[in-house]
Amino acid sequence: MSLPIAPILGILSDNLRKRGSVLPLSKRTATGWARGLGLPRGGETILYTGQMYQMIPALEVMSAQMAALENSFMTRFFGIGRVFNKFVNLSFFMSLSASSEKKRHSNQVLRDIAGLLREAGVEFGYLYEEELYAGALVHDEGMDEVFANHARRVAERLKKQGVRRLITVDPHTTNILRQVYPRYVKDFDIQVQSYLEVLAEAHPEATEPVNGEVVVHDSCVYARYEKMFDQPRELLRAAGLAVRDPELSGKSSHCCGGPLESLFPAEAHRISGARVDQLEAKGKNVVTMCPICKVNLSKAAGNRLIIHDIATTLAACRRQAAPNG
C-alpha cells in the first residue's frame, strides 16, 4: 500500500504551524555549525541557511523509515501518528537517531560556505536561533494558507532584525525567498542572493589547476526556476578544476528524485537511479549544489560515484592551492 498522502502532509503542516519547521530541530542542531566562527549576530547582510543542511541527517532517517513503511500494513496508522505528533515532536527522535558523522558533514558544508564568503571579502552576520525554515516544502505541496502565515512570520522577524540582504545556501530557500515571498508577503523587498552568485560576482582569481575533474549535477530549482547554472561552473573552473557536463545539464538538468522522498520513496529511488547512470557516464566525482540532491544521489549511487557538495569542493581546492594560507 502506498504511503498515505493526507496524514503525511498534515504532519508537515502541523509542524510548520506549531513548531516553525517541517522537521523541527533543536537550537543546538540548527546553530551548532557556527560555533567558534565568531559570526556577528544579526546585521543588514545575513547568511541565511534556512536550516536545510541541518535537517538533512534527520531527513535521511525519516526517508529510510518511509521507504521501509511503503507497501506495509503500517501505512494504516499514519492518521494516529499525526494526532500523536501534535503533542510530541516525532522528528526530535529522528534527529536523535541521525548519525553524528552526517551531522558533522552538514555542519562542515555550512562552515565551508562561510569561509568562502569571508575569503571573498563578503561581510555578513547570522541570526542564530532567530533563523527559521523558509517553508518551501509546504508551498510545493500546495498548503498555501499555512505557508502564507509562516512566510509572514519569517518576514516580520527579518524586518525586526533590520535585515536588508540575505545570502542563501541552497536552491529551495533561495527560490522561495526570492520569487515566492514577494507574492505572499506585502512589501517584501529584501534582496536575496545565493552564495554561489555572491562568490561569482566577487570574481575569484583563478588558481593553479588542481589536477581534478568533476561532473556537475545542476539542481532543477537553481537551473530552471532561477536560471542559475553558469556561476557554479565559473567557480569550479576558477578553483582549478576541469568541469564536465552529463547528458542532461544546465536548464535541461535531470531531477535527482528528491522531491518524492517523503511520499513516494520507491519512485524517488527510480528517478535518482536514472540520474546516477547519466552522471556515471561522465566521471566518478560529482558535484551537487543542493543538500537534497546530494543525499538522494548518494543513496542511489552507493560506491559507484563520489558525490561532493560544491562548497566542500571549492574550499578544498582553495586549501590545496594555498596550503600555508
Binding site: 498522502i5 532543477c220 530552471r224 536548464k251 535531470h254 531531477c255 518524492l260
Partner: peptide, 16 residues
C-alpha cells in the same frame, strides 16, 4: 489522479 498529482517532481522539465 491524486497520487500522480502529488508525485509530480515540480522539476519544470516539461514547463521549460
Amino acid at each position: 489522479s491524486i497520487p500522480q498529482i502529488f508525485s509530480c517532481l515540480l522539476c519544470r522539465m516539461c514547463e521549460e
